[in-house]
Design a binder for these strands. Structure first.
Lengths: 216, 216
DNA sequence: AAGAAGTCGTTAAATGTTTCACATAGTAAG
DNA sequence: CTTACTATGTGAAACATTTAACGACTTCTT
């Protein structure tokens, strides 16, 4: 079905959801056409990069005109499987987990947090952001065929939970704990390490001076 | 002072905080030496990449021996300015903001959230995770010489808040809103877009199949 | 209808990052 | 001391990504 798509660079793939959201915005605003230059200003990605990214999917635009918003939107919807919702489980309803549950992922999105798990009996049985919280002991029983998990547990519990998720058949984990988890090569893991992000920003700030402020 | 450091690749710079944390762990465990191979398994970064990264800072190791943990740690502490705390302000004490305030950034870290701001009078005057919450109207008055801001406001407020932060003299913004904010070129912005991260993971899962599970 | 202006899609060049592979220098042991 | 081993640091190759530049085609203007 998508043998060709395998050739799309990862850097491009990571930008697709971003493009999708902005194209969606344009569509809501009733805009009919958009150029790579305009889009570039909105998403802060070089216009040549945008044209290159789009070109991996064939000729989406028209020379001298730009891109038709409607067409672009329906194309991206297909490509990002916006019509097919991916169900997600959230593990660990602490502060960060709660933030996720309350975050409205559904606005432009193809993912739904279907179920949440926590070890704290006080939270079990409650509903957070419209999602039922189950006890972590029932993970295997209640996970169903959910294939993606968001891991927002304390880092000491991360590897153990990852093992259980893998055993339960999960295919991908979005890991928000500082722990670097080990999983079989068939499971995809993305790390988002908030402390590292903040430290890296501070490091860049101190060591990579930007040009001096130009007055607005 | 760090003319040489300007040459360090950004990809390397982003890994430094990660290395630092794991070296710190090893030190706490009383480990005296570590090889690039060992470290590689812990942080999930190729050992050649680790050696290359370290080499930008000169010869930190010894051939045939590896790296002295104590020495590595004190080197990284200096390099990442661990002795000098960078003060951070958090804007928007919603779910995500609260998660940040409760997150213990201080464990291995050179950053401290010193003050938080919110528009909701009910939150003003309270303390979350040990940080006082001030009213957003007092931003300019109470910001002091804080140079980094974490932006966890609704995306509709993002650009406006960014403008105020810039005006108030902030140097770097960690933007958790989906909005792509526009700032003068002297201000550094990093985006972390949770919805995009999740969508990208799902996209990779569907379009970039990993090798089949090898039994553990 | 013709010329001017605009914008894509792409070739080629530049830039950035990772990985291989090995000479070298140090360790460890007898 | 000598030999065997180990693991760094790095030159060079491979790989990945971005950016510049421009020919070709479309739309717009007169």
């Amino acid at each position: 079905m998508d043998i060709e798509q395998t050739k799309i660079p990862q850097a491009t793939a990571k930008r697709l959801p971003l493009y999708y959201r902005f194209i969606n915005n344009l569509h809501s605003q009733g805009k009919l056409r958009v150029s790579s230059k305009e889009l570039s200003e909105a998403v802060k990605v070089d216009s040549a990069t945008i044209r290159r990214d789009f070109s991996y999917f064939g000729a989406l635009g028209k020379k001298g005109y730009g891109y038709n918003v409607e067409h672009l939107l329906s194309f991206f919807r297909k490509t990002l499987d916006q019509d097919e919702v991916t169900e997600v489980a959230l593990i660990g309803v602490g502060n960060l987990g709660t933030a996720f549950l309350n975050y409205n992922f559904m606005k432009n999105n193809n993912t739904r947090i279907k179920i949440a798990f926590d070890a704290d009996q006080k939270r079990v049985g409650t509903e957070v952001g419209g999602v039922d919280v189950e006890h972590i002991d029932d993970l295997e029983k209640k996970l169903g065929n959910v294939s993606v998990a968001i891991l927002t547990v304390p880092s000491s519990a991360a590897q153990g939970m990852a093992d259980r998720l893998v055993e339960a058949g999960i295919s991908a984990i979005l890991n928000f704990t500082p722990a670097r988890i080990t999983v079989p090569s068939s499971v995809r893991v993305h790390h988002i390490d908030l402390a590292v992000e903040l430290q890296a920003l501070v490091y860049f700030l101190k060591h990579y001076p930007l040009e001096e402020a130009e007055e607005e």
